[in-house]
Design a protein around this nucleic acid. Structure first.
Lengths: 134, 134
DNA sequence: ATAAACCCTGAAGTTAACTCCAAGTCAAGA
DNA sequence: TCTTGACTTGGAGTTAACTTCAGGGTTTAT
């Protein structure tokens, strides 16, 4: 499979796929005798695996490190486990913070049904009181 | 309150506070006669409000736009509501994607108790089969 | 009244993650 | 065979969100 087809299948741009290979986020795909990348199923699986973590906001460097360790085999099991535990903590914290924002947004949307949201309204009022004009 | 005290209270660096004011993420704090910023409670409230959204990964430009609209008063109610609805969709999607990654991580952590995670193990095996050495 | 610590601005530098470009090689159809 | 389109690389450019710097003014404590 050419890099273009791989790009269509994964939804990642051609340039970006090459970039990911370059930084080691995806293992280097095999090449034809003339040097053209030939994406196989194994490499595509890596792309999908990597994308799932990327979508959750994990830094590429963290994912890259995990891929590097995984390719090194069983001896890196412990280190991978620690990396996953740290990543899990990050994601749980992120989830909480998103929930906090959702709570605020839902509250505001509720109150917008009646009038300007009271919390912001109060802040705007306090702000305006300090301003000479407007 | 000096900018340094505001920085300590909010956990945002002095430079970053000035940066946020500059890009309009926070309304400009009042100044003393000699031009030194004098952070008041109203401005601090804005900082806290903005930080909550920032922590959830919302782009600063989106938050900046919301602040701009809020300062313009009731006439922008509708536009703010639409902005909040869009932001809510983003956050819900992000939450789902984080959950997907958490599921994968939890599954891997479970299986790591016994041996190398089967999904990755399979991918590594497929990968190694293509490689001449190692 | 002077040194230390703090404040200001505008601009340049940094990092992550792309995104595009130039110049050249390779492959498939008329 | 010649064009057209896809592939290659290295490197430059972009955007978001900081971060640091240069050069100067202000406040405070001794």
């Amino acid at each position: 499979m050419t890099i273009k087809e791989a790009a269509e299948k994964t939804g990642v741009s051609v340039d970006n796929l090459r970039f990911y290979v370059k930084i080691g986020l995806i293992p280097a795909a095999p090449r034809t005798s003339s040097g053209i990348r030939n994406f196989d199923e194994a490499t595509l699986s890596w792309v999908e695996f990597v994308l799932r973590f990327k979508r959750s906001g994990m830094p590429l460097e963290t994912i890259r490190r995990y891929v590097e360790l995984a390719l090194q085999g069983d001896s890196t099991k412990q280190e991978r486990k620690e990396l996953l535990l740290a990543a899990k903590e990050d994601l749980l914290k992120k989830q909480e913070q998103i929930q906090e924002s959702l709570d605020v947004i839902n509250y505001k949307l509720d109150t917008y049904e009646q009038k300007c949201g009271p919390i912001t309204a109060e802040m705007v009022a306090a702000w305006k009181a300090k301003q000479p004009s407007e």
